[in-house]
Design a protein around this nucleic acid. Sequence first.
DNA 1: ACTGATTACATTGTCGACAATATACGTCTT
DNA 2: AAGACGTATATTGTCGACAATGTAATCAGT
Lengths: 228, 228
Amino acid sequence: MSLVFPMAVTSADKTFYQLRQDIVEGLIPAGSKLSETELSTKYAVSRAVIREAINRLTSCHIVERKANIGARVVELTPEGLIELYQVRESLEGMAARLAAKNMTELEIKDLMALLDTHFTTVESEKTYYQEAGDVDFHYRIIMGSKNTQLITLLTEGIYHLVRMYRVQLGMAGPRVTTAFAEHTNIAQAIQNRDEELAEMLMRRHILYSKNNIENKLLTPTDTTRKSL
Amino acid sequence: MSLVFPMAVTSADKTFYQLRQDIVEGLIPAGSKLSETELSTKYAVSRAVIREAINRLTSCHIVERKANIGARVVELTPEGLIELYQVRESLEGMAARLAAKNMTELEIKDLMALLDTHFTTVESEKTYYQEAGDVDFHYRIIMGSKNTQLITLLTEGIYHLVRMYRVQLGMAGPRVTTAFAEHTNIAQAIQNRDEELAEMLMRRHILYSKNNIENKLLTPTDTTRKSL
DNA sequence: ACTGATTACATTGTCGACAATATACGTCTT
DNA sequence: AAGACGTATATTGTCGACAATGTAATCAGT
């Protein structure tokens, strides 16, 4: 297990990561109740460990806990996803602004290199980019902001929720090529140290992405999509 | 104790609120170690309760915990405060934008009424406004956004940290009257449902506030200020 | 006297048991 | 038969004890 989650030192850590993964991947369905005793037998740890893991998931907004009643996995609603994207828009917009100011030349160079590999990947297999590449790009800019508050809020909080939506609603859309162009423009603005433009482009990028997802949620023609 | 924290039902709740207050108010100094056994005797609860409280404080970024070593209250640094204000700028900017869209007419009316009382208060005793009034104003706009993610991030996370800085660095500045004017303009923009302007004014308002605080931190002429 | 290892201590992590609370069921009353 | 009350059960909250880890002191060797 320590091979799977190298950063996890304590048992509660591992359980937290495992539980989060199982919820995000949909193995534990959205809205379902999290019984402490049940989970403690399932993951072969004490209830105290499970409780700590659940508490940490609560502060990520992945589960909701009520005193003396119990914890449930959050329900996935269109409104919830929109709220998430509004927060993303503001935070990642600021991240792009700060990245334009604080990223080192080397980091920017690496970012450009990443876009190059994406360019070739997009041409061959179109699915890859959406999955990992997009996350990679955003991740680097977030880290480039050098703002620890911003970084933890996004990477340890919001992103897992976003991924939960993505996975469970089966988002793998046709926005691949256009998103690539947007990424390129954002990277350019950062390279030019144009904070204002970097923020604006990032906000628009996320806004477009939100609109794209909203359309998909409201026009359920794809039968392969998992149900809400 | 339940009279002090009415929202706290469980013992861990009360301990969490009490501990947070004691840290924010500076009773437990910044950077100090949080011994579980020590705190459990001090607050007359079991170590499990203390652990849960500490974990919750960790996710608020008020304390930092290292596995097998322990938890410490965060250190207050100028850089940390700046990071906080950058996050505030982006999140509260978005909150103002959403408030301009989503606040009810009644809520806006109440907001205006609040500003009226502030106006009279500012003329008489100049200290009050900074303390509670400013928080009140921002709080209403945050709630007015109707975005639960945004609301919890700000009111349960960032705001307590900001207050910790404010209290412990003794911020009670001469920005009272100018801040009042800014508040008025923001409220006006919200009343006019001008999302763009509301966001912009809010961002500037927080930016000014940040600059004001930076100046104070870098020009330590006031001897009454508590030391870092 | 200084460095290294070893041992003793203190602190955190984990566990099973007990207490308190909420839910579900059955009974009694109208 | 429907509703209210009380009990029974299951689940969460809390606790003290034990295990594992980190830290500091002690001692040996050079």
